[in-house]
Design a binder for these strands. Sequence first.
RNA 1: GGCCCCAUCGUCUAGAGGCCUAGGACACCUGGUUUUCAUCCAGGCAACCCGAGUUCGAAUCUCGGUGGGGUCACCA
Length: 467
Amino acid sequence: MVKTRIAPSPTGIAHIGTAYMALFNHAYAKQNGGEFLVRIEDTDRARFVEGAEQVIYDSLEWLEIPYTPTFRQSERLPTYKKAAEELIATGHAYYCFCTPERLETMRKEQQSRKEIPRYDRTCLHLSKEEVLKRLEAGEKHVIRMQMPDNEVIVWDDLIRGHVEINTKELDDQVLMKSDGFPTYHLAVVVDDNGMEITHIIRGEEWISSTPKHILLYRCFGWQQPAFAHMPLLRNPDKTKMSKRKNDVSIPSYREKGYLPQALRNYLCLLGWSHPEEKDIFDLDEFIKLFSFERMVKGGPIFDSKKLQWMNGKYIRENMSVEQLTAALQPFLVPEFPADLLPKVLPLIRDRLVVLSDVNDLTKFFYTDISYPKEELCWKKTTPAEASEFLKAALHLLTSIDAWEAKRMEPILLEYCNSKEWNRGAFFMAIRVAISGRSITPPLFETIEVLGKEKTLQRLTSAIEVLS
RNA sequence: GGCCCCAUCGUCUAGAGGCCUAGGACACCUGGUUUUCAUCCAGGCAACCCGAGUUCGAAUCUCGGUGGGGUCACCA
């Protein structure tokens, strides 16, 4: 059975890159009737952030990417210890007592000699007796993997094809830290094997450490999974997508009012393309059509412009009124009138890019408005003309009882024509008078929702401003 | 710097030797619809990194440059 996974570390924000990997891992597993698992890699106690794990789970749930939670690596320390000791017993690893300080000076010297910094294997040559003595004395130590000197490690990457790296480029990687926690390289192999992961779909940043992992599978005598190294999401300057240069936090997109289905859809298009070149499709379609063959190898730039367009498109075309109403609820400010949303929804639907836009678009319906004189005078309209426009509108609207857009529009329009007024100027004066802004939904629909009382009141005060 | 990965419009990409005077989408520009904005519709701008080969023919294959990225921790 196909089993895929993501293995995020709870070190801070729930990263967009994690969502990206989750999406593809889930899709591939699901497509093959397999399972997508989540494991928490919390072996770095220095960078551990309380609560980060929950944010990751919450984010996946928000994105509606189904997953099976498994465990935290911190719960399995004895397993890694046993595995590391097995490696020592079989001669693939050794104890190292070098202090961080010694390693630091060693690296500096190597760098000053323009050599590649790497462990000098001092402790590899320690006698068995000495190792035992120092261990018994309780001396701090790590366990290092003994890399073969000159061996070409090859694998057939599902995305990149044939990749080969010589072990002479590799360091004697630390497998167990002095605090008793495993490093990523040991834990990832032990756990992926334990969880029977068949396909490791992860970021390109892992390519250079893949040989270490492959070697570990061999040392343990375990079956090696397939590898697929995904392109790395980039900042606009092409560097690896980062907090510094981009909004990479999943909850942040949620708070801004992006729809999970839109974000998901957008992520699918980074590195993968629909066989029919469609750009709007749902998760089921992605699962059905996904293939590594259609992956590009270059790292795509995460461009929020297209995401914005897609979000607006989903809002106006792929959601029922009920769905949109429900989605909007968390974004409404406390003072938003309870009965307003159903009335304004048809007016603002095509104007929403993100859900949080709802407040700005509707604020003038229920709060007091104000405007300087100039706003009422569109283009070359004089205050006197604007005042005349508004007085006429006030007069005409006062006499209308059936408060419907389709009733008032012809009346106002006809009057405007009879006076040979500039239509734009006339309607703009009214628009600004009733809303306080020059950009609004269609005028008469807005007036209808606003109600007769408020409309007349606002026209009156606008006339006062102009006088 | 060593090693590894990569390279089509500003961005996401289609393209697996002739279908390519390189297609689509976003963004941008223009026009139409419209009393504003948005939507919608029509159109436009815009790319095969460079150089050698292979071939009757290369965006597509090979090699070399160049450029970009990743990685070289007791971080993942």
